[in-house]
């Protein structure tokens, strides 16, 4: 594969960054409808990075986060994560008027509510990408876990790591108000999906 051992070209990075911006823009709109409040997003990073670098984005491999994971199939293979720091996840539940236990961890109801929020947001993100690229995307049922960031992300590395030692990371942050709720979208396309993705977006390799 082209992008496996070499770095991404400027043009490819631009295309992936734009992809992340459009996706997260739609997700931010969905979240703002859900919360009835303004939601902002930050500029996307799109680059080829070492597996270890990815969890550094959220503060390190040991930081406890809520991760909502979807597997992508169809026109684009790979994985999609929405990571919410634990404090953000709790704040989000409060915004949704769910009683939040102050204990460590989250109840089944809270986890399932977060899975549904993740599903809505990731769904908006990926629908935007499908429309932009005209690729048909199939999403798995969302899976949710509360654990160390590194442990949550490693299944994504496996999905993209059987052929490469690095992953293409498209990272976008969204947040609400004073950053009381912030989240990171990570899209890790399989290296073999890059050629069809770039082709669909009209970008040469």
């Amino acid at each position: 594969m082209t992008s496996e051992n070499s770095s991404l070209s400027e043009q490819q990075q631009d295309v992936l960054r734009e992809l992340g911006n459009v996706g997260a823009g739609h997700a931010a709109t969905a979240l703002s409808v859900l919360l009835g409040q303004t939601v902002r997003m930050s500029v996307t990073a799109a680059r080829l990075c070492e597996f270890d670098e990815i969890s550094e984005v959220v503060g390190g491999a040991e930081v406890p986060v809520v991760g909502i994971f979807l597997q992508l199939n169809g026109g684009l293979h790979g994985s999609m994560f929405l990571l919410l720091p634990l404090s953000s996840a709790r704040q989000l539940l409060r915004h949704l008027h769910l009683p939040v236990d102050s204990e460590e961890g989250l109840s089944d109801l809270e986890m399932s509510a977060l899975a549904e929020v993740g599903n809505i947001l990731s769904g908006s993100y990926l629908t935007a990408i499908a429309e932009m690229s005209s690729l048909v995307l199939q999403l798995s049922v969302p899976a949710v876990a509360l654990d160390m960031a590194g442990a949550i992300l490693d299944v994504g590395f496996m999905l993209s790591g059987d052929v490469a030692d690095r992953a293409i990371l498209i990272n976008t942050s969204i947040w609400q108000g004073d950053r009381s709720v912030d989240g990171h979208f990570f899209m890790l396309p399989h290296p073999e999906s890059m050629a069809p993705l770039f082709a669909a977006l009209g970008c040469s390799l």
Partner: peptide, 13 residues
């Protein structure tokens, strides 16, 4: 197994 296995994703999980 960080995530519960569902359908097509089970082999990966």
């Amino acid at each position: 197994q960080m995530f519960a296995a569902t359908g097509q994703a089970s082999e990966v999980m």
